[in-house]
Design a protein around this nucleic acid. Sequence first.
DNA 1: AGCCTAAAGGAAAACGTTTACCCTATGCAA
DNA 2: TTGCATAGGGTAAACGTTTTCCTTTAGGCT
Lengths: 342, 342
Amino acid sequence: MPHSTHVTLAQVAAAAGVSIATASRAINGSTRKVSEDIRQRVAQTAEELGYLPNLSAQTVVKGAAPVVAVLVSDIADPYFSSISAGVMAGAREAGLMVTMATSERRSEDELEMIRTFRAQRPRAIIVVGSRQEPDERTAEIENQLQTYRDSGGHVVLISQGPSPFDLVEIQNYDGAKQLAHALVDRGGRSFGIAAGRRSLRTNVDRIAGFTDGLAERGLSLADGAIAEAPFTRDGGFTAMTELLGRREELQLDTVFATSDLMAFGAATAMRSAGVIPGQDISLAGFDNIALAEDVTPALTTVDVPLEEAGYRAVKLALAEDPAPESLQLGTSVILRGSTPQR
Amino acid sequence: MPHSTHVTLAQVAAAAGVSIATASRAINGSTRKVSEDIRQRVAQTAEELGYLPNLSAQTVVKGAAPVVAVLVSDIADPYFSSISAGVMAGAREAGLMVTMATSERRSEDELEMIRTFRAQRPRAIIVVGSRQEPDERTAEIENQLQTYRDSGGHVVLISQGPSPFDLVEIQNYDGAKQLAHALVDRGGRSFGIAAGRRSLRTNVDRIAGFTDGLAERGLSLADGAIAEAPFTRDGGFTAMTELLGRREELQLDTVFATSDLMAFGAATAMRSAGVIPGQDISLAGFDNIALAEDVTPALTTVDVPLEEAGYRAVKLALAEDPAPESLQLGTSVILRGSTPQR
DNA sequence: AGCCTAAAGGAAAACGTTTACCCTATGCAA
DNA sequence: TTGCATAGGGTAAACGTTTTCCTTTAGGCT
């Protein structure tokens, strides 16, 4: 039995002895004015009856829902949840709701979720960094986003340019390069990288930045010094285990994990192999998630303003400017105990 | 310019040469059948035109949105984001979207968000563990949820009974009690608790369970052995610092932090005071969040099936059974290096 | 007094769906 | 042949809003 007990605007209007039109204007405002006494009377009856406007009905006539939709890979991952926190803060400021979906890192789900988003007519769609290498499915996704934007929606991609959409970019390349410099300064000479899949741009950029940073210091990576695995905590464990298998031949003294989460897994992998992170082998991550300073040794990493990225994405989406914009968010190296001077 | 380029059902119907009713039945099914050839033709034109049903319009007539709404305190907190992950999994199985809001642990915001939720006519509202001590505002919140349920909605509270609503409860009391036993078995004698605010039931239960567990072993807490602070990582730091100030008088050998996050903060507080966690003072947490095993020393804690809690909450909300149900999720102690045998 | 304008209320048309109801053709039993 | 059920199409009413007009009233000018 739907439509059961919801109080409708018509009921409020009747109870207040005015027309529906007037009630609407009194409650949700409009260009048109309503005399103060009537406005008050309507507001009061609405309050008494416990009236709540039906958002869907408003959306149908207005053509857009007061909603920003966010697509992330995995909300349990602190990287994404931090960004989400920023999105929610921005949405709240703008008086919008947030609908969220996870793609579980599968592009078929990503496509499906974006179609569902579109059906909701949200004010903006924000897609967070799960961009894969282009294939026919990502093309279709881009297509969906295009037509969504053509129909008046706003699209912002976080950490995955280049693209025709608004971008909030994180300086992965620069950050990784600076990290490389810092690690060399700390005495690192033989490096390994515990990397997430290179199908994700984020990883590609971090690897490239790091490699180039080493090159600028006259160093290079040995063959097999990059171990690739899923971009998760467990992936870090796997990749590190693989690197440790080549420890002698690589003469590993420092490992860069392309995310803090991977670094955590890597540290645990080291310990289970009897290697002490920060002592036997230096370890650095990327992202500076909340817990990076709480582990032992505290993790050297690159600070990324994740929450700000989410926040700015909303602002960008809601800005007037029709020209596609790209926002660069700076990163900064944070040296901690996991990479002592050698 | 709203209503701009969205393809409508009427357009599809026209293009396919059928009535709107038939198009509707062909695309979204119903009790009524549609001949196979027409169904195909409509489906194909819809595809060609890129038709997407307007969810809001459907919601208006159906009376409920295909949505489950989730209210959490802070999505960046791994406790809440893990639960959210479970909710999203459950929602996806049921073919529902998820709209999420954060209360930032303020009950005024909580009230506001719940009203906004209601305006959306979601199929279910799930509120996660931010329940405070009863006051006039929480009463109003309960009120809102009541009338929401009366109008056909489903409400599930996670980790915050007792209440007239469906409940997914986490055995905080039992888990904490078992943890106390285990810590005594490991040789702990003088305990401290770094606790979150007792305005949250979760904390009350965990403290009570732990205290009672100690009592069952003939031990009791000294005066001032409970330090209360915000239920966050920083709160853990604060509470631990406070406990360390009374270290001598308390003869502290073991500290229980009422969440893993607090435990992380507590560990860092120890180290900044020159105390080595797990060696000088044993440390245990609660929740078993993903990173608990990656810190050093690995954190002894109580495993809580967070993701399952979220998942089950959705199932519970969507179940037929009208009688309020309460689901108990078991916990289990996980002993790790932070609480060595003494 | 007469006229015009502005202010503010109401009636009704939209918005994009679903669904109750109506209509026609077809098949089948008597 | 008649009667009748049924399958499957269409028309139009609903859902709860906003907004476009239309209408009335009041007030200010000349």
